[in-house]
Amino acid sequence: MSSVPRTRPHVHHLAPLRRALSSCGLVPSSMPSAGGLGRADDAAVRPASLVGDAVLSSFPCGPPVGCPEALGFLDGIQRHQIVAYDGPSPLVLGWVAAGVLLRTGRELKPTMAGTAQLAIGRETVLAKAADALHGFEVLPLEPPDDLHPAHDLDVARGMVDRRRAQLEEEIGQRFRATSSAWLLIDGSLSHSTAWSQDPRMLGIAKSHAILPFDGRALTTYLQLPEGCRTSLFRPATRGGRETFSWGLRLREWMGKDPFHGLVRIEAAPTEETRRRASEYSQWILAERSPLSAPDVRWDRQLYGMRAVERYLGAILGE
């Protein structure tokens, strides 16, 4: 005979339980913010080395202050779609776009943009489809030996991703060739040697698949209060291009999750960066508004970046 529980389970009424957990020393939270943890396949802890401080600490940055100069936002988007199969092998089309919106005054104006459309597939597929692929960059797929279409698609997706990063870099270089304005980049600077050394570029990483600390330092990193930044550190990057980085909490996260409103800033590894990290953080704090809703990543997404994505989306005909 089954016994009837005293309290009925209820998936939505968790507030009393959260309060109880808080008194046990835990931090009440909820599901991670969209995209905050990055792709599970990439998730790892790669300990970074601190710059200056012996222990990872948090510092209030001060009130938000808009960047006093013209400020550019560089971002890119990518789309892909299977359009045909040759036996088990898919033909994947990809579209990538990257661009810069430059803010002068309070107005964002498109400054430059580039697009590319890709056709990705195994050699045999591309050969058969050659006549139909005018205007496409044809990229042969080098997949694993097995012919599982899911693997092909995964590799194709990676190729689109890399082409987008490449296009972003090209656009960034073109922009820098014509303008010395500050440029905020969506993502890490360490992909590019030029970017990682540019004294007027800041990278904003919203995804936290790679965590720079473990143990106590990780707790400090993830429990960073709103409006505060961490000590500077050198992230351990695969590319090996050195940057200075720090965590910055854009929004109150208590009751949500540790990644809510948490971004990682990258800048050139210079003395000036060490000196002005809080000032740069104030600029970025100011970019919390306007809110980039309805973007699901609104807690970390800067409005300027979202504007670039919408602009590029319109160019791609979305």
Binding site: A286, S289, Y303, R310
Partner: peptide
């Protein structure tokens, strides 16, 4: 929704002027 504007301004209509004019 209007709520997004409230959140963006942190509930303070007299708060900081957005550095970027909303589209």
């Amino acid at each position: 929704t209007p709520l997004d504007a409230v959140i963006g301004a942190e509930g303070d209509p007299a708060g900081l002027i957005d550095p970027t004019a909303r589209s």
